[in-house]
Amino acid sequence: MVTVSLPEILDIRATSPLAAELLHARGNPLMIDASSVAKVGAQCIQVLLSAHATWTADGLPLNVVHPSEPLLDALETLGIPFTDISEQESTK
């Protein structure tokens, strides 16, 4: 199991580094710690959606744990269910 911790600011500048870090973890079960996220943009949400689709296609689990309120609010604003980025449901 590989763990990736999301940074506090997930804006457009964080998109490429996030995608690269997730790509490096490909082929392994993945846990993403989202507890530190204070600001999130749609581009990083797209990266998380893509990662979830990729891990699902690879038959591997991807779980986002400890989602922050700003992340959950951003998903809700965009009309995206939490389960579109994580196998397990949010406990918040």
Rank of each mutant, 00 (worst) to 15 (best):
M1A: 09
V2R: 10
T3W: 00
V4E: 05
V4Y: 06
V4M: 04
L6M: 05
P7N: 13
P7F: 12
P7M: 12
P7G: 11
E8G: 07
E8H: 07
I9T: 07
I9V: 14
I9G: 02
L10T: 05
D11S: 09
I12V: 10
R13Q: 12
R13P: 00
A14K: 06
A14W: 09
T15A: 11
T15I: 05
S16K: 14
S16M: 12
P17W: 05
P17V: 07
A20G: 01
A20Q: 14
A20V: 14
E21M: 09
E21Y: 02
L22H: 01
A25F: 02
R26A: 13
G27Q: 05
G27T: 08
G27V: 08
G27Y: 10
N28S: 14
N28D: 11
N28W: 08
N28Q: 14
P29C: 02
L30A: 02
L30W: 01
L30I: 02
I32C: 00
D33N: 09
D33L: 01
D33H: 02
A34H: 01
S35F: 01
S36M: 05
V37F: 13
V37I: 11
K39M: 07
K39A: 04
V40L: 06
G41A: 14
G41R: 04
G41N: 11
A42T: 15
A42Y: 15
A42F: 15
A42Q: 15
A42D: 13
A42N: 14
Q43W: 07
Q43M: 13
C44E: 08
I45Y: 12
I45E: 06
Q46D: 13
V47R: 01
L48P: 07
L48A: 08
L48Y: 11
L49F: 13
S50W: 10
S50T: 11
A51Y: 03
A53Y: 03
A53N: 09
A53H: 11
T54F: 10
T54Y: 10
T54M: 11
W55I: 06
W55G: 03
W55P: 00
T56Q: 12
T56A: 11
A57M: 06
D58L: 12
G59F: 07
L60S: 03
P61R: 08
P61Y: 03
L62D: 03
L62S: 05
V65W: 01
H66R: 15
P67M: 03
P67N: 05
S68Q: 07
S68W: 08
S68T: 01
S68C: 05
E69S: 14
L71P: 00
L71A: 04
L71Y: 09
L72W: 02
L72A: 02
L72V: 07
D73N: 14
D73V: 01
A74T: 03
A74I: 00
L75R: 05
L75D: 09
E76H: 14
E76L: 09
E76V: 01
E76R: 11
T77W: 15
L78F: 15
L78A: 15
I80A: 12
I80C: 13
I80Y: 15
I80E: 13
P81H: 05
P81G: 04
F82E: 04
F82S: 03
T83C: 02
D84F: 14
D84T: 15
D84R: 14
I85C: 02
I85N: 00
I85Q: 01
S86R: 07
E87T: 12
E87Q: 15
E87W: 11
E87D: 14
E89K: 04
E89N: 06
E89Q: 04
S90L: 03
S90Y: 06
T91Q: 06
T91W: 04
K92A: 09
